[in-house]
Write a protein that binds this DNA or RNA. Structure first.
Lengths: 108, 108
DNA sequence: CGTGTAAGGAATTCTGACACG
DNA sequence: CGTGTAAGGAATTCTGACACG
């Protein structure tokens, strides 16, 4: 159930026109942010871009930062830092989970 | 968080071509099931249909039943019965919640 | 009843480029 | 650097209809 919901969030199914409406950004801006590696839409066999709800959220964050005058290069760095932080946290949690499983083994 | 995920599930943002790929149904079939009131996509200002992930799931159920030879009129009845059941359950839960809130009031 | 298809038009998306700054 | 725009082509979507069964 939670799994399913997460998969919806990351499923790339929204075309650029709809993303434009959801975010208030122009097609041009959305494609440009891709050019600057701020996001990576899926490409269909025919070449059209497909975005996920996560991509839409990311674009809204980008829009906020751009409004504050932050350049795309800077936004990219911030995103990388955030991802590293999350990766570390995730690894820590998985390790903790393994330890818990180990010490609990055979007790119940 | 859960709220957000549910809103994703019901947000109508997917165009018919993508729905066709996700479900394996033809555009013709998808439009026909709409004609028979089995689902109601959103219409953009320009007239294109937009579907949610819930719609996609519903279409897959429809496809299963159609494969078993169930006619669309029958499928519609089944869906209505299911919705009524869910509505009753929801009402029951909300009432229960109110009662709980009432008797718990002022104790903590 | 349920689905395929050809028809014609309107809107979408894509890329590469020029413009402004 | 970031965004708008005109350009031309290719794929999408829509509706109403005919076909088969």
């Amino acid at each position: 159930m939670v799994q399913e919901d997460l998969s919806y969030k990351d499923k790339k199914v929204i075309s650029i026109g709809t993303v434009s409406e959801l975010t208030g950004l122009s097609d041009r801006q959305i494609r440009y942010y891709e050019e600057r590696h701020l996001l990576t839409p899926h490409r269909t066999s025919r070449g059209t871009r497909k975005y996920s709800f996560s991509d839409v959220e990311r674009l809204m964050e980008i829009a906020d930062k751009r409004e504050d005058g932050v350049q795309t290069a800077e936004i990219l760095k911030e995103m990388k830092r955030k991802e590293e932080r999350q990766d570390r946290d995730l690894r820590k949690k998985m390790l903790q989970g393994q330890l818990n499983a180990h010490f609990r083994y055979g007790r119940k």
